[in-house]
Amino acid sequence: MEENAFDPDLIHAIFKQLWKRRALEREKNENLDAMDCEVGPGTSNKRNRPTSAHANALKLSCELLRIFISEAVQRAATIAEAEGSARIEATHLERILPQLLLDF
């Protein structure tokens, strides 16, 4: 089970990219606000440092994503089995998708 898991570094890289973008957006918005209010920007850089993550939090996120995928496959597999098919097809995924998205 452990070979087929996400690499925490990969998830970290993805999160970092998303957080960096959000920090940039925030900074931009703040600069616009600052221009409107005529308040000098300068302290915004420190406050807009992108979010970072603890190592265990990343491992936990990897596990959460792994559970999400295995749950999707397992639920689709039960539907496929009930229909007597040996192959998971689009219709099976369609059937389980609403509940899956509600559960996660």
């Binding site: 087929n4 496959v73 397992q74 496929a80 192959r87 998971i88 689009a90």
Partner: peptide
């Protein structure tokens, strides 16, 4: 892909690529 295929194999199922 590796996680999904391993999980399908565990359930004795094949999984089509678009899925």
């Amino acid at each position: 892909i590796s996680i999904a295929e391993a999980e399908a194999k565990k359930n004795g199922m094949e999984i089509s690529e678009p899925i």
